[in-house]
């Protein structure tokens, strides 16, 4: 069942002459891991802001078409209502975190929702356990590493129990190890908790194998959409100029019919054939 439904969405920022998004049609199923990629400036971040209602509610501009999230049209509902269903994680966790301890950071959103004290306590405990960050509980977010900060930012959102997590290049400022641990966490949220994950990422060599489906945005429109292997092995993807993973380039050059997305699956295929 579709939990996100975007119909004929065209959006132009106030003061801008041309639309940043043009005629987007997209539906994402509940529990799906959906990957969005595309050249810089193609509209990825704008699309993320449409998913939690920041656009059009806080930005204004010309908004045509409709974004329906968990049955609610973003045009007709305030951001705080949509935000309870869609958690949005930005690129730079430093800009999001401001409390003096991780625990308070997680409590902040819950207090704003006006939840009773016991419920807040319960959700903090649940979230900390789920994220495996009990050792960080009393630390100040600003003294944590980038990877830890991003996990805290995600935890603060998860505590609000959104059904959908939208992440805009969450690992851009993280080292490869921290990136991998944040991305592995997303797989686990999908696998164990059935969350819907919408992830914007450039580093396809790490994330392509994790996604159920993927879309390439180009100049504000969806240029390609489908299973990651269909999209990444297509000639159009190469023409758009996204970073085709080496494993895909190598497989194509070898003329192999399979379409592996990881080093391991390529190696397995070669060894089996041998």
């Amino acid at each position: 069942m579709a939990i996100v439904e975007i119909r004929n969405l065209t959006y132009r920022y106030p003061g801008s002459t041309k639309p940043s998004l043009y005629n987007i049609n997209l539906s994402v199923d509940e529990g799906e891991f959906f990957l969005i990629t595309g050249p810089s400036g193609c509209g990825k971040t704008t699309l993320c802001k449409c998913l939690n209602g920041l656009i059009p509610n806080s930005y204004g501009g010309d908004f045509d078409g409709e974004v329906i999230v968990d049955g609610l049209s973003t045009k007709n509902h305030p951001v705080y209502i949509i935000a309870q269903r869609v958690g949005l994680v930005f690129q730079d966790p430093e800009n999001e975190l401001f409390c003096t301890s991780v625990e308070k950071e997680i409590a902040f959103g819950l207090e704003n929702l006006g939840l009773p004290r016991e419920e807040i306590r319960k959700r903090i405990e649940e979230t900390i356990a789920m994220m495996g960050i009990s050792h960080l509980r009393d630390r100040a977010p600003y003294e944590l590493s980038g990877g830890e900060q991003q996990k805290v930012a995600i935890a603060a959102l998860l505590a609000m129990k959104p059904k959908i997590l939208v992440l805009d290049e969450p690992t851009a400022n993280l080292d490869p190890f921290s990136s991998k641990s944040v991305l592995d966490l997303l797989s686990r949220l999908k696998g164990e908790f059935g969350m819907t994950i919408i992830l914007v990422e450039h580093r396809l060599e790490i994330v392509a194998k994790m996604a159920d489906r993927c879309a390439i945005l180009n100049n504000g429109s969806i240029a390609l959409i489908g299973k990651p292997e269909e999209v990444l092995y297509s000639d159009e993807a190469e023409a758009i100029g996204i970073g085709i993973p080496k494993v895909v380039r190598l497989t194509k050059a070898l003329g192999i019919k399979n379409r592996p997305l990881s080093s391991k699956s390529l190696a397995n295929f070669i060894m089996v054939r041998k």
Binding site: G38, P39, S40, H202
Partner: peptide
């Protein structure tokens, strides 16, 4: 290179 796509890199 953060936030840069492949062509830009």
């Amino acid at each position: 290179t953060t936030g840069q796509d492949y062509n830009q890199k």
